[in-house]
Computed example of a mutant assay.
Amino acid sequence: MSQWYIRVAKVTKILMAILICLITLVQVNVADAEELTQDFSDVKKTDWFYGHVMDARRAGLVEGTGNNMYKPNEDITYAQYLTIISRILDETVDSKPVSNPWYAKFIDSARGLGALDKNENVNAVIAIPREMMIKYTCKALGIEPYTGNEIIFNDVKPEDAAYLNAAYHEYLTEGTKVLGKDKRNFGFGETATRAQLAAMALRIKEYHENPVAYKEKAAQERKAAEANWQKAEDAKKAQYSIKSTDIQGKMVSAEKSRIFIEEALKGIKVNSDMSVTVTIPDILPEGWVWRIRVGCTEKDGSWGTLITTSDIVVGQTITVKPYTAASNIKEYTVKIEFDNGISTAFKGGVGSGMYISKDLIKGGKYVYVYGKGFTERPSYNP
């Protein structure tokens, strides 16, 4: 065999090897691309967080938990959140050798970015509070703590507000509930879910890439959210108002009365230890008051009062433990009505045109309309 044929054979062999490598590389890349676009089995297209999870996954910021699952309702851990920060701000972190445990290199990266103090240690596998997520984010992005005395978050003490207020002014947090223009609840001490993690990851990434453009966009979104809140509040005030046309004699119409009472019933529940939790909303017009009583029926037939109106602070939550052993309790029954602060037995007194009595364990509801009697009763024999 001539030298020419030998050289051709060698070149052909090398080219075939290169071709096989290229085909394998393409197959791997296609498989990776398909994995990044494949839906998680527990993240549906109808979920509010679907787009966030998929976008964050394609950006390489979040991963599944195995078996094609994302576990969107699982709490975020310190490790998971610090991993997000390091992946956004440290482009080299994923190329570094795998650490043991897996999150060690990400926490070291976050420390190098300034998110963590030099000697700060964290329990990486426990859920991270929302306020710590904000603190680490601000420190990593170089956002200075806010030094003003402004109160934005009603559930945050002034000494804990510096980084939270700074993040609010940078549009990195909106809190958990809008209470008005620049008024919020933050959810201090609460944790966040992996679904929320994906949304936060994209927000931090967008801020990091172009803070000015991000804040301009976020400002418009905040303005729209506050406008929607105001619209809902106006509608709520219209719904929970009592006009002269709603009053017939000394009674608010049964239809209007029921709107208030049904809403109040939503805030009363029995807990697993047989204590009763009550949160009565502040929806009555000024000067009007609730008349509420929760009674306890024991298995021997005896009856007593557990909660009365005087125990309740409107707008706040109270939990009352039973006055007898939990095993003795047969039923709790709540009765709710309201008036304008004056008994209907006196001049000027106006009351609800009905009351509702509800069994909190069995769920039976009794509706009594003054002048008509019971209009609803539970199907079982009371």
Rank of each mutant, 00 (worst) to 15 (best):
residue 15 L to D: 01
residue 139 K to A: 08
residue 110 A to G: 08
residue 318 I to V: 14
residue 65 T to Y: 13
residue 108 D to K: 00
residue 106 F to A: 03
residue 246 D to T: 00
residue 183 K to D: 01
residue 279 T to F: 11
residue 224 A to S: 13
residue 202 L to C: 04
residue 106 F to M: 02
residue 220 Q to M: 13
residue 68 N to M: 13
residue 156 V to I: 11
residue 143 I to G: 03
residue 41 S to L: 11
residue 262 E to Q: 05
residue 311 D to W: 02
residue 30 V to M: 15
residue 149 N to M: 10
residue 111 R to T: 12
residue 54 M to D: 07
residue 95 S to Y: 02
residue 237 K to I: 00
residue 132 M to W: 14
residue 356 I to F: 03
residue 382 P to L: 10
residue 266 K to E: 15
residue 160 D to I: 00
residue 302 S to P: 04
residue 205 K to V: 02
residue 95 S to C: 08
residue 64 G to Y: 10
residue 215 K to D: 04
residue 122 V to I: 15
residue 89 L to R: 08
residue 285 P to N: 05
residue 29 N to P: 00
residue 58 R to N: 09
residue 293 R to S: 08
residue 219 A to P: 01
residue 311 D to Y: 04
residue 206 E to P: 00
residue 249 G to T: 09
residue 4 W to H: 10
residue 265 L to P: 04
residue 53 V to P: 05
residue 302 S to K: 06
residue 258 R to V: 01
residue 284 L to N: 14
residue 327 S to M: 02
residue 116 L to D: 05
residue 353 G to V: 02
residue 41 S to P: 01
residue 370 Y to P: 14
residue 299 K to F: 09
residue 325 A to L: 04
residue 327 S to G: 02
residue 281 P to K: 08
residue 96 K to D: 12
residue 275 S to A: 05
residue 267 G to Q: 13
residue 368 Y to L: 01
residue 245 T to E: 10
residue 3 Q to N: 08
residue 358 K to A: 12
residue 253 S to V: 01
residue 366 Y to P: 06
residue 24 T to N: 04
residue 346 F to R: 07
residue 356 I to V: 13
residue 98 V to W: 01
residue 134 I to K: 01
residue 212 V to H: 09
residue 114 G to C: 09
residue 339 D to L: 07
residue 307 I to M: 04
residue 92 T to V: 07
residue 316 Q to N: 15
residue 14 I to R: 14
residue 154 N to Y: 05
residue 155 D to E: 12
residue 316 Q to H: 15
residue 314 V to L: 14
residue 23 I to A: 12
residue 226 E to H: 06
residue 28 V to K: 10
residue 213 A to T: 10
residue 280 I to K: 13
residue 109 S to Q: 02
residue 330 K to R: 11
residue 2 S to G: 13
residue 379 S to M: 06
residue 299 K to L: 11
residue 238 A to D: 08
residue 312 I to P: 15
residue 62 V to W: 07
residue 115 A to I: 12
residue 203 R to S: 11
residue 185 N to F: 07
residue 249 G to I: 10
residue 289 V to T: 14
residue 178 V to A: 02
residue 265 L to A: 03
residue 290 W to A: 13
residue 161 A to G: 11
residue 222 R to A: 07
residue 70 Y to L: 11
residue 363 G to T: 08
residue 325 A to S: 09
residue 34 E to D: 15
residue 328 N to A: 15
residue 3 Q to K: 12
residue 1 M to P: 14
residue 319 T to L: 15
residue 206 E to H: 00
residue 162 A to F: 07
residue 155 D to I: 02
residue 301 G to M: 04
residue 52 H to V: 00
residue 217 K to Y: 03
residue 381 N to I: 14
residue 89 L to I: 09
residue 245 T to C: 03
residue 38 Q to I: 07
residue 360 L to D: 05
residue 291 R to Y: 13
residue 159 E to D: 12
residue 231 K to L: 08
residue 301 G to F: 03
residue 252 V to C: 02
residue 173 T to H: 06
residue 259 I to Q: 05
residue 282 D to N: 15
residue 258 R to A: 07
residue 112 G to T: 10
residue 272 S to K: 06
residue 204 I to C: 05
residue 341 G to N: 12
residue 7 R to E: 15
residue 180 G to P: 06
residue 204 I to P: 03
residue 272 S to R: 01
residue 217 K to C: 00
residue 366 Y to D: 15
residue 265 L to T: 04
residue 59 A to E: 13
residue 60 G to A: 10
residue 140 A to T: 11
residue 251 M to S: 10
residue 173 T to I: 12
residue 207 Y to F: 09
residue 60 G to D: 14
residue 376 E to D: 14
residue 216 E to A: 03
